[in-house]
Write a protein that binds this DNA or RNA. Structure first.
Length: 582
DNA sequence: GCCGTTTTCGGCCCGACTGTTTTCAGTCG
């Protein structure tokens, strides 16, 4: 087995794509590397291991050549073609290709004709007016390049924001536009609609009785800071929170085409069009052109677009080119789990550790949501930060939970704990105490950098513990802030299935961990998945659930895959400790 | 470099915009 992670392999393919692009390779070869990088990043199992077994070619977009390159990377630590290309194209030149307006072709000219090899050298050349004589670079080029260089060095340039922050802007904005008398239909598009982990900007598609008035309305909303353009076709604005918003106002008979197009993803749309071409159809944001009749079909709804292509309607969360087109063609799309399907929450905190509310308050919050059961899972003995719960404190908490459970009707309260998985894989309470609990979820909160092999062993050991019912936030990632720690998801999932340990989708919008890809791998292996709030207060118990459900839906999960959609009567015997006693 | 209801070669999604052009390549989404 190799410690080379999928992320590292994907980064190597992305680098090769950049280098081949500078080298002037045909675009399709470059695209092949980028697609391969994506396939590797999405793979739920170790691609290094797959390649060494000769099975990496099973992944879409990986052929014999790229499999060989993975093997070279594993065995020698590098890829020969990358070494060769790096010698010709410095890393600074790759950085230049990332500047808006400067792609590989223009960057290459700067390098070959002026010796420019970094953004700093480029700035010096522009300021010395060295670009003026270069063919293809006119008077506007200097200005645009300086703007791009300034934007690239500015703080927070190009940052993606978490989905919850984006929705906090998007939903009031859409609501305001829907209320406006000039609007007819207003829908969010883009990655926000697909409920991705983070987003860059907002796309809104609308139809209107009075398009200019609607565009004017968005420009005058109080959360808009800056208006870049506004007219009958729509408006481009920036909010005070820095979100770019693009409102497109379209003809009613093309609303379906445009909503479909701007919802994406890019990969979904590309694959959709490739499949369509085979049927003699050409899909664009303006309609579906039929080669046979020469006619362009315009669609008022997305369902019509998909129907023209012989496909079932595909939910936005599935539009990532991960098999949804094939499934839609065969009528095999999943019936995705919904937020209202949940019957309980198996991970939350109270004032006993770092939560803000009491057991009783959390119980009432769960009742208000319509839950039948709630596990109180404060942090454990080694947690630190003043939030640790000693064995004695946990014993008192068990009694408190029992007492509140007796007092509050309509909900089953479980005395639980979120125990730390110590570096050797053991929990930080003794078995006698764990035995007295109704539910134990175990998480890694320390020693993140022990390497993939050790981390995998550590978590597998925890799953083999008979009193650990589930694993919390498996990879420890903090979206856009902290990478997941290295862990072999394939082995984890296999061990979870073997030991009867459930895996959590932590719904906190900073985490969403399991990720969509990991959750799908878990469900495919028959592992019961949980959608838990990890709430530290009564407010977040409800507000974060949509993000966990969104991840579950992006993972193709149906109600049956998510264990806490079961009633208490069905769920209780599924717990590992209950199964032991049978 | 990948891939096959056009299977081992010859294709590979679609359109807008920009700046520099005199008919379009490069870039972007």
């Amino acid at each position: 087995m190799s410690d080379l992670t999928n992320r590292q392999i994907a980064a190597a393919f992305d680098e090769l794509a950049d280098l081949y692009e500078l080298d002037g390779a045909i675009v399709h070869r470059v695209v092949a590397y980028r697609n391969a990088a994506r396939a590797v990043r999405d793979a739920p199992v170790s691609v290094a291991t797959l390649a060494q077994e000769g099975r990496a070619t099973d992944l879409p977009g990986i052929g014999a050549t790229l499999q060989e390159k993975v093997i070279a990377l594993v065995q020698t630590g590098d890829i020969p073609s990358a070494v060769k290309l790096r010698a010709r194209f410095p890393a600074g030149l790759v950085a230049i290709t990332r500047l808006p307006g400067l792609g590989p072709k223009r960057a290459r000219r700067l390098h070959d004709e002026l010796g420019i090899d970094s953004p700093e050298a480029l700035r010096a050349a522009v300021e010395g007016h060295a670009l003026r004589d270069l063919k293809g670079f006119g008077p506007r080029a200097e200005e645009n390049i300086l703007t791009a260089l300034d934007a690239a060095t500015a703080d927070g340039a190009g940052d993606r924001v978490l989905l919850d922050r984006a929705l906090a802007v998007a939903e009031p904005l859409v609501a305001a536009l829907r209320e406006h008398p000039a609007s007819v239909r207003v829908e969010l598009a883009g990655s926000v609609r697909r409920m991705t982990d983070s987003v860059k900007d907002l796309d809104v598609i609308a139809t209107a009785r009075d398009p200019a008035a609607l565009a004017e309305a968005v420009a005058s909303l109080d959360f808009v800071e800056e208006v870049h353009s506004s007219g009958p076709a729509g408006a481009r604005v920036v909010t005070h929170s820095g979100m770019k918003v693009d409102l497109k106002i379209v003809a009613p008979d093309q609303f379906g085409n445009l909503l479909q197009h701007f919802t994406g993803s890019k990969q979904h749309n590309e694959a959709l069009r490739r499949n369509a071409v085979r049927r003699g159809l050409h899909v664009s944001e303006y309609g579906v052109l039929d080669d046979a009749s020469g006619e362009t079909h315009r669609c008022t709804t997305e369902a019509q677009v998909y129907a023209l292509l012989g496909l079932e309607y595909i939910e936005p969360e599935l539009r990532e080119n991960r098999g949804e087109l094939e499934a839609a063609a065969q009528g095999r799309l999943p019936r995705l789990v919904r937020e209202r399907d949940l019957r309980g929450d198996l991970h939350c905190h109270t004032i006993a550790s770092d939560g803000r509310n009491t057991v009783e308050e959390m119980a009432h919050a769960a009742l208000d949501r319509g839950y039948q059961y709630l596990a109180i899972t404060d942090h454990s003995a080694t947690h630190g930060f003043g939030n640790d719960v000693s064995p004695e404190q946990l014993e008192r908490q068990i009694e408190l939970v029992a007492e509140v459970n007796a007092r509050v009707d309509g909900i089953e309260l479980l005395a639980g704990s979120e125990v730390n998985i110590l570096p050797d894989g053991s929990p930080d309470y003794d078995d006698e105490l764990l035995e007295r609990l109704d539910w134990v979820i175990a998480s890694v909160h320390s020693s993140f950098r022990i390497g993939e092999r050790a981390m995998t062993e550590r978590i597998v050991t925890a799953m083999e513990h008979p009193l650990i019912d589930a694993i919390g936030h498996l990879t420890g990632r903090m979206i856009e802030r902290r990478a997941p720690y290295a862990v072999d998801i394939g082995r984890i999932v296999e061990a979870a299935a073997r030991t009867g340990t459930m895996l959590e989708i932590n719904a906190n919008p900073n985490r969403r961990d399991l990720s969509d890809v990991h959750a799908r791998a878990a469900a495919d292996a028959g592992v019961p998945v949980l959608v838990n709030s990890d709430a530290h207060g009564t407010d977040t118990m409800s507000s974060v659930v949509r993000y966990g459900i969104a991840t579950a839906r992006r993972a193709w999960l149906e109600r049956r895959h998510v264990a806490n959609t079961r009633t208490w009567k069905q769920f209780a015997p599924m717990r590992k400790r209950a199964r032991r006693r049978q």
